[in-house]
Design a protein around this nucleic acid. Structure first.
Length: 473
DNA sequence: AATATCTTTAC
DNA sequence: TAAAGATAT
């Protein structure tokens, strides 16, 4: 056993229920923590998460300090940074797994490096209930349908003996292993865009616990219905905390099991955790999903290239209020309500017929909760080219969706304030309001708010026609 | 985790 | 004749 340990933080920004951290403190006299910031993973790709990351580092650094552990932030490629560790350093490296194909591939190289340099290492299950390798159909092939996958997976999780909760030992001797740690401020994005996220989020472990308690106390009972109403704060909003491991999914699952009121809402919420597991499984068995359609017949789909439309979509200027509200919420807060994510995604892919990968890319850059598996799998789900996907002909009507799920316009008028005087009857089709009334409320469609960039009925029919062309093959 | 349209039913 | 149900996309 080496004298020293390094806990390599990747997506586990928490103290509680952190097996890698706890084990390191139990087994070693000296413990340090490291985060390796690789700009290649963030610059111009995941800008919103740069902000969440920098705040998470600040907060974790404070929490670790209380345990007498320094968080050393290193800049560069993971392999290069870790290559300075040599046998004489007398150190064991601990980490938790991350289930992204690229990260897994890099992890293999790092393990080879450690073996070559005679560095001891130990890794643990990541932020997931059941590892995808454990979950295949009886014939050994991966699941492609959600319901049987989740039924089996949840049973498997329940049947396993609960993992022993190892506690963090507090009497740790402080040590620094790396030279030239960078300041966390260097990671903070330079642009002002991210500043406003501070109004909406506090990326800390403490806050994650608050969100979970709020879910259990006030949200879960009515979750089944409330989660569909974007004007109501009915979803858990735990996704960014889950992504950065400020909370472990097992903690959430167990808390949900503990509560007495096991109503429909409870099952509905647990199911969402199931979709997260399913996405991880899919992306790992079918890593080609990251680069293209899972269903090969979609490779012939006549996508439309239209930068003007794409720009309007990104800016929340499509002329469809519920779509624009969603896109503006995303840009303003780094997050979008789940129901609205489906609406805006359907609009991009079906009304505008722009490739789902364009939407995936934009979400990746703007979402603080961006998760490769969930994002790619769900975009393919909406586009109809994924596993257990929505059929292509299931086309959301952006007018109806608004009227159904944001009846009073609470959400839409919040994010599209220029429509605040629009009568609810016309809120989702403001172009139908007579010109003289538009003038009266000083909202002229085409001047104060854009005209719809595409006609719903025409776009719907065009999408169905486009779908027919691939069905023949 | 849809919508549009056609058909039947209920009054 | 509106609402509910069935069906195609």
């Amino acid at each position: 056993m080496t004298k020293k340990a390094i806990v390599w933080i990747r997506e586990d920004f928490r103290i509680e229920y952190n097996e890698a951290l706890a084990t390191a403190t139990q087994n070693h006299e000296y413990v340090s923590a490291i985060y390796i910031y690789n700009p290649k993973n963030f610059d111009k790709k995941r800008e919103a998460q740069k902000w969440w990351l920098s705040k998470s580092l600040e907060n974790l650094s404070i929490d670790l300090k209380k345990l007498n552990i320094t968080l050393e932030v290193q800049l560069g490629d993971e392999l290069e940074v870790l290559s300075i560790l040599k046998k004489k350093d007398d150190v064991t490296v601990y980490w938790s797994k991350v289930y992204e194909p690229d990260v897994i591939n890099k992890g293999k190289k790092i393990r080879d490096l450690f073996i070559k340099n005679e560095i001891q290492y130990k890794y643990f299950k990541g932020n997931i209930l059941v590892e995808f390798q454990e979950m295949t159909k009886d014939d050994g092939t991966p699941y492609k349908v959600f319901t049987p996958f989740w039924k089996k997976t949840e049973q498997h999780y329940i049947s396993k003996a609960p993992s022993k909760l190892i506690r963090v030992k507090s009497k740790i001797k402080k040590i620094n292993i790396f030279k030239n740690s960078i300041s966390i401020k260097e990671i903070l994005p330079k642009k002002n865009w991210h500043k406003k996220f501070e109004k909406y989020w506090d990326p800390s472990e403490k806050e994650a616990k608050k969100y979970l308690q709020e879910l259990i106390n006030n949200k879960i009972e009515d979750y089944g219905d409330a989660r569909d109403i974007p004007g109501v704060n009915g979803t858990s909003k735990l996704s960014p905390f889950l992504k950065f491991g400020q909370i472990h999914v097992e903690t959430i699952w167990k808390k949900c099991q503990d509560i007495k009121v096991k109503k429909i809402g409870y099952r509905k919420y647990i199911n969402e955790l199931g979709w997260r597991e399913f996405s991880h499984s899919l992306i790992n068995y079918f890593p080609q999903m990251l680069k293209g359609n899972l269903r090969k017949d979609f490779d012939n789909f006549p996508w439309v290239k239209n930068d003007k439309f794409l720009k309007a979509w990104k800016a929340g200027m499509t002329g469809y209020p519920i779509v624009d509200a969603g896109m503006r919420e995303l840009y303003e807060t780094g997050w979008m309500h789940n129901r609205v994510r489906m609406i805006v995604a359907s609009f991009l892919v079906k009304h505008l017929r722009i490739h789902w990968m364009e939407g995936e890319k934009h979400f990746k850059n703007c979402l603080v909760d961006y998760n490769e598996a969930s994002n790619v799998a769900q975009w393919q789900w909406v586009a109809g080219c994924g596993a257990d996907a929505a059929p292509y002909f299931r086309i959301f009507n952006p007018i109806l969706q608004g009227e159904k799920f944001d009846k009073d316009g609470i959400y839409t008028k919040k994010w599209v304030p220029e429509l605040k005087n629009m009568p609810n009857k016309f809120l989702y089709k403001p172009w139908e309001l007579e010109t003289k009334y538009q003038e009266q409320i000083k909202v002229i469609v085409g001047i104060n708010y854009p005209k719809p960039i595409i006609d719903h009925v025409e776009a719907r029919n065009a999408a169905l026609d486009a779908f027919k062309t691939i069905k023949k093959n």
